Computed example of a mutant assay.
Amino acid sequence: MRDVLSHLADLLDSGREALLCQVVETKGSTPQKAGALMLVDPGGCQVGTLGGGCVENEVKQKAVRRLGQAGAERHTFVLDHDYAWADGLICGGKMVILAEAFRGPEAASYFRAYRDRIDAGLGLVEAVAVDPERCGADAIGARWLFGDEADLVASLPGGAPPEAVRSLVEPIDRRPRLASRGGVATLPVLPRIALVIVGAGHVGQAVARLAIEADFDVTVVDDRAQYANPDRFPGAKRIVVGPIEEVLPALPITPHTFALVVTRGHGHDQEALYHLAPTPASYVGLIGSRRKIRLIFEGLRGLGVAEGHLARVTAPIGVPIGSQTVPEIAVSVVAQLIARRNLGPEAVPTNDFGRAGGRPPEPEPELETESAEALGS
């Protein structure tokens, strides 16, 4: 999405025209969900995707015809056997896509505001008129951009949204969902998650690589400069080298922060968890065997860490996929982080050392977690 919005804003700022195709509604199984964007410039260059195949090609052909025209056009595709057999899109779902050619300073201002919020990692909800008669909009494709508190940030064309539109937009902290109702598509983008990885060993490095690709803002913390450096973490937003007990208390931790403890030893793990468990971070995870985790929790209780803080720690971490190697462990861990980010804590169990969650399937992952610790040293 960031690439699409960046190219779109650049085209409009330079005075050129840009074709934007956006999925605004889906039902059933589809290759992309509502909110997916595809940009086509006048030269035919494409950024983003609607899922590929015949749908994308047909949308592109129809969208090009809108060059020089005003307003949006709605296209509905049913991905049945007859329509999409050649491309394998026989999932039976339905996609509604809006296509519009944008131009001029008003559109540039709107999409620049959209891009700037995405680049800053801020949450937003875009409301798009799909059926103007039902929602009271002046035209199909009218857009309104709302901030974290459902405050109006920008509109295209300018002006306040109809009450029927505003009533459907919720503040970001209520985790608004993709929806199409009342003639309006509400398309939320949750704030980008800052992931703090404590431990720059092999596991931390592998997790960071995947997490960056999955659009987390990664901060790496370690007391060893030979491990925590840009050569080993080229995509990290921040690398902090120093003693854990000094670095972690100084880091900004918010509800939009995830923290992962994958250090080289039990003592460092306990120190990191001592500082992270009481923070507002919405996910705190600890790698290790059950025996190690139990010992660390007992030590933290002895240091006065409250049971409520320990209960919210995810340990052991990762989706139980039988992982053995470092890359497999990283896939398991990042899959859990994505699920927690996209679905919320209620959809992902925490741990059986606190008060929530459940025990992963047997056998216990003793070997995988202990080997991960050794590789992280």
Results as ranks from 00 to 15, higher is better:
103 R>Q: 14
211 A>I: 00
99 A>K: 07
97 I>E: 12
211 A>Q: 01
144 W>S: 08
130 V>T: 08
133 E>H: 07
193 I>D: 04
194 A>Y: 02
179 A>L: 05
181 R>P: 00
77 F>W: 06
155 S>G: 13
82 D>A: 14
187 L>P: 13
122 L>C: 13
75 H>T: 01
165 V>S: 10
112 R>E: 13
217 D>T: 02
92 G>Q: 10
85 W>V: 14
77 F>N: 02
135 C>Y: 07
103 R>D: 13
158 G>F: 07
201 G>F: 01
207 V>Q: 00
156 L>I: 08
212 I>Y: 00
82 D>W: 06
127 A>P: 08
198 V>W: 03
118 I>M: 13
162 P>H: 12
87 D>L: 09
205 Q>Y: 00
162 P>A: 13
178 L>Q: 03
205 Q>M: 01
204 G>M: 01
165 V>T: 09
98 L>Y: 13
139 A>C: 04
141 G>C: 03
196 V>C: 05
204 G>T: 01
209 R>S: 01
142 A>V: 06
146 F>Q: 07
99 A>C: 15
180 S>Y: 10
158 G>D: 15
141 G>F: 02
79 L>H: 02
174 R>V: 10
78 V>Q: 03
104 G>L: 07
94 K>H: 06
102 F>L: 14
166 R>I: 08
135 C>R: 05
137 A>L: 04
78 V>A: 08
170 E>H: 14
183 G>A: 08
92 G>F: 05
140 I>C: 10
124 L>D: 10
140 I>P: 02
136 G>S: 08
140 I>H: 01
141 G>K: 02
149 E>R: 14
76 T>L: 04
193 I>Y: 03
87 D>F: 08
174 R>G: 05
97 I>S: 11
126 E>M: 12
111 F>I: 07
206 A>Y: 00
76 T>Y: 00
95 M>A: 10
209 R>E: 03
158 G>A: 15
98 L>V: 11
104 G>W: 09
80 D>M: 04
185 A>V: 10
78 V>M: 02
185 A>S: 15
207 V>P: 00
175 R>Y: 07
200 A>V: 03
110 Y>K: 11
138 D>Q: 13
157 P>H: 09
102 F>I: 09
154 A>Y: 04
154 A>V: 05
88 G>H: 11
96 V>E: 15
78 V>P: 00
161 P>G: 14
159 G>K: 13
216 F>N: 00
104 G>N: 12
131 D>G: 01
181 R>T: 07
109 S>Y: 10
202 H>Q: 05
179 A>T: 06
164 A>R: 15
213 E>T: 02
107 A>T: 08
153 V>A: 04
122 L>K: 15
77 F>C: 02
125 V>P: 06
144 W>Y: 13
147 G>H: 07
211 A>V: 00
127 A>D: 07
87 D>E: 14
134 R>Y: 04
134 R>H: 09
100 E>M: 08
136 G>I: 11
126 E>T: 12
177 R>T: 09
